[in-house]
Amino acid sequence: MITILYAVAGYFFLLLTVRVLARRPGAQLTMFEFVLIFLMGGVIIAATAANDRSLTNCTCAVIAVGLVHRMVAMLKARYPKLGAVVDGVPLVLRERGEWKEDVMRKMRMAPEDVAAAGRAKGIRSIDQIDYAILERSGEISTIRTEEK
């Protein structure tokens, strides 16, 4: 019974922690982030299950976490504001060939990160990037300047 509450609390605690650890450029997780995730997950797992390691208890905890996740997804679909809180919003990094300096600085992005994302799509130089957007997934999408 108490495990369900622990599981729900654990879910939201993890959500908050992961959300405030700033989104790093690049959708791939680095080795360090992997370790961090395992560490945080493992600690919460140990606390959630505590001394009741029966199958009944663990099954209920998993169901509780799954249910909360689904409910959050449903609420996100209904209230876009909540989606912004949970997932963040896409941010424009470069607009019509101009850098958005404050966004770049706050998200700890360097022009090189954007250039790398552009190269992945075959854009050779930064000048050719018209728009660059930091997506919610951490990916950077770039839109090429249209040739005149």
Binding site: A7, G10, Y11, L14, V18, I37, F38, M40, G41, G42, I44, I45, T48, A49, R53, S54, L55, T56, N57, C58, T59, A61, V62, V65, G66, H69
Partner: peptide, 13 residues
């Protein structure tokens, strides 16, 4: 984290 959480809880049981 979620996948790890779900997996780890099942693993415990």
């Amino acid at each position: 984290v979620l996948v790890f959480y779900l997996g780890g809880l099942t693993l415990t049981g």
